[in-house]
Amino acid sequence: MPPLKPPSAKNPPERGNILDREEYIEQAHLFELLHEQAGGKFPIQDLLEQLRHEVLATTRLPMAMEYLLTEVKHSGLLGPAMRQLAHYFTPFQTYLVDQSEADTGRFMMNTAFKVMQAEAEYRVEKANPAGMFFFQFEVLCRNRLSYDRGLTAMSGDPIYDDRWSKWILGLRAQIGLIDFADLVFLVSEDYRNKLNAAGKPSDGKGPFLFGEKEGRIALANRRKDPLYLFSALQRHLGYPAVPKPAPADETQDLIPQMARRIERLEARIQLMEEERRASLDITKFYEQNKHRLKLPE
């Protein structure tokens, strides 16, 4: 089987099929376990080796994990292996893993697994295209991921039909130039209703992908912080809240720092006591005697 090319503007991602509900349940379980242990001391191949026995054997996930494990042992990366399984993993899942494995990015792998867990749980609860779009787009915004590659990956999700995919691909040229609330309002049923009420034809407009509720929320949040729009949409549409990166735990470095400070204080106190007893030998601080000093670095 020839390797698949990474998704791009000229090479849109291959669209898979919507999986059975049991597959998404097991995916959510796997991503939850990986999220809990990905930041630990165990490499990803050891985690896959251990967790492949914990997922339900009647699903296709164990076979996918077997392939991932084989590829990870050779290349050390999950992203290329997931891209080969485009019929099982969505392009957006693969994109998140690719970004978490990038050397120059700040998107952590445990954050990617947490996002994928929330997305799989939402699919179990009968996700709709509008809620899935807002969830995935908010993931791109909050984690400062590339809009171009991220929207391209989103367009290949099987939950979107051709109209959705074409509109999502067109967003790449509009994001940053037009307010996002305006973009949502102009493809909503609320905008079409306003056109009809004003006696203006709606032909050539659209496509009208979002409902009347989404259009009203977008209109009410024009020229505001996009976080207010995302928060309102999440409350009313019921899609899962986007996981936020956990702040770094600074307490892990606190004890070593305190130990070094105590060592420096002890050295200073020792020098003060020697000076008070008039027994301080300053020759040990000479260049030729510096090897005799046992001061902390």
Rank of each mutant, 00 (worst) to 15 (best):
F133I: 06
E138V: 01
G40K: 07
I282K: 04
V72Q: 11
G39Q: 10
R142N: 13
I159W: 03
K10L: 15
R264A: 12
S146N: 14
E275D: 05
I262D: 00
S231H: 03
G170Y: 03
L183F: 02
I255K: 14
S202C: 15
Y286D: 14
W164C: 12
L237H: 04
E125Q: 14
E23Y: 05
D46K: 10
E297R: 13
A9T: 10
E250S: 13
P12W: 03
L186V: 12
P91G: 05
R268I: 11
L280E: 06
Y160Q: 09
H87F: 09
E26R: 05
P296M: 12
K294H: 08
L265K: 13
E214K: 03
I159F: 02
R264D: 08
A9N: 14
L33A: 15
I18Q: 14
P3M: 07
F92R: 01
T90W: 03
P6H: 00
D225V: 13
Q252Y: 10
T152S: 07
I255R: 12
A241I: 04
D157A: 08
A102V: 09
E49W: 00
G211C: 06
N110K: 08
L219V: 10
Y147G: 11
D20V: 13
L61S: 07
L61A: 09
S188P: 06
E26L: 00
L271C: 06
W164A: 11
A181Q: 01
R260H: 00
P62G: 07
Q117V: 01
L78K: 09
H87T: 08
L186T: 12
Q50M: 14
L19A: 10
A38D: 04
L195S: 00
R142I: 11
N221S: 01
M82H: 10
K114Q: 08
F134H: 06
E119W: 05
R260Q: 12
F135G: 03
S100K: 04
L219F: 11
F135Q: 01
R52P: 15
M154Q: 07
T70C: 13
R260K: 13
P7T: 08
F113L: 07
P13M: 02
P226G: 06
Q99K: 10
P80L: 10
Q50N: 11
L280Q: 05
R123C: 10
A130T: 03
L48N: 01
V72T: 11
L30Q: 01
E214P: 02
P247K: 00
L61Y: 05
Y67D: 11
P245I: 00
R21N: 08
Q99E: 12
R268E: 11
P12N: 04
Q288T: 06
A130K: 03
M63Y: 15
R144V: 15
E119Y: 00
T283P: 01
F210S: 01
P43Q: 07
K73G: 13
E189P: 07
H87Q: 13
G238A: 09
G238K: 05
F185N: 02
L151N: 03
S165V: 02
L209G: 08
D182Y: 02
K114W: 02
M116P: 05
A86H: 14
E101A: 05
A38N: 01
A197C: 14
L34W: 02
G156T: 04
V124Q: 04
I178P: 06
A248M: 14
L77V: 07
P245V: 00
S75Y: 03
M1E: 13
A278G: 15
L96V: 01
E66R: 11
T90H: 03
S165A: 10
